[in-house]
Design a protein around this nucleic acid. Structure first.
Lengths: 148, 148
DNA sequence: GCAAAAAGCTTGCATATGCAAGTGTAATGC
DNA sequence: GCATTACACTTGCATATGCAAGCTTTTTGC
């Protein structure tokens, strides 16, 4: 039992690492996006009003606030996101998904789907995929950071 | 099916990300190790003669060769690993696990086990843990990079 | 055998990211 | 109401890491 937990944690981290590495190459080559930039867009897409305060975005992405500040700047220049200050609380500066950002995200989602297909095909059948999904869900369910 | 694959990939990456972030804090505070340094030691521990050529280590860790060069240098200073040139092929410079490195690794493994316990307790029973382990195994099995 | 290609490693440069300090704004305590 | 505290964000500095170029050694093709 103890050993199984260790094995699971190792396999989980190694597998994700492998998949992320593959994804990074595709995203960079095809869309000029990093995996983290993709996730940033995904979080905005999922948020109400397609926007999130920087601090909240940082929490959901498991990165520091300064990283969000620095990621948002070039994406703003590209027009993928925009900045919006809260009317009531001048401290809050939302990162907002633009139409162009949404279009870019949709393209990237297709690449993501292609990679997911390639990763799982020929090794898992439908019932196993559902099983895996259900097991992983316990980690992310309830968390505002969950994208699923 | 297609959607399930996407969900699985997202959950896999997000879960691993979360677990790695927690791990990073513990490792840094308790052992002065990064998660990647821990994995480096794990790979050496598992390799025959407790050593690996830099290029091979890079492949297994999914990082570039230059990263291995730069990670090994400070660990060598700390005495956790040593450098050993191949007798037959002067191009190869092995990274070798030292006794001190092995001791440090054993301490870190205990921390890893504690984190794995915390991550899985109260949410998975024994049979589910085995199921998850089996499903994840298909990704890593056969790969020389697999630590399990 | 020798020139050319390949392989392993390192280093310069650019980018990414965390932490701590700094700035500005809002909430709290009295 | 005003001072203190807390919060959101940004910036300076240090570290981590990938890519491309360069160096050395080995392998390949003839």
């Amino acid at each position: 039992m103890k050993q199984t937990r260790i094995t699971n944690m190792l396999r989980l981290i190694q597998t994700a690492d492998l998949l992320s590495a593959r994804l990074a190459g595709e995203f960079s080559a095809v869309h000029g996006l990093s995996v983290n930039e993709f996730f940033l867009l995904m979080h905005l897409d999922r948020a109400s009003l397609n926007r999130l305060a920087r601090v909240e975005l940082a929490r959901r992405m498991h990165v520091s606030a300064s990283t969000v500040t620095r990621m948002a700047a070039p994406m703003e220049k590209l027009g993928l996101v925009s900045r919006q200050v809260d009317e009531r609380d001048a401290r809050l500066a939302y990162v907002v998904l633009t139409d162009a950002g949404k279009r870019k995200l949709d393209e990237a989602k297709a690449t993501f789907a292609k990679q997911a297909d390639a990763a799982f095909e020929d090794r898992w059948d439908t019932s196993e995929l559902k099983q895996l999904s259900e097991l992983l869900n316990r980690f992310v369910s309830g968390e505002p950071a969950s994208l699923t």
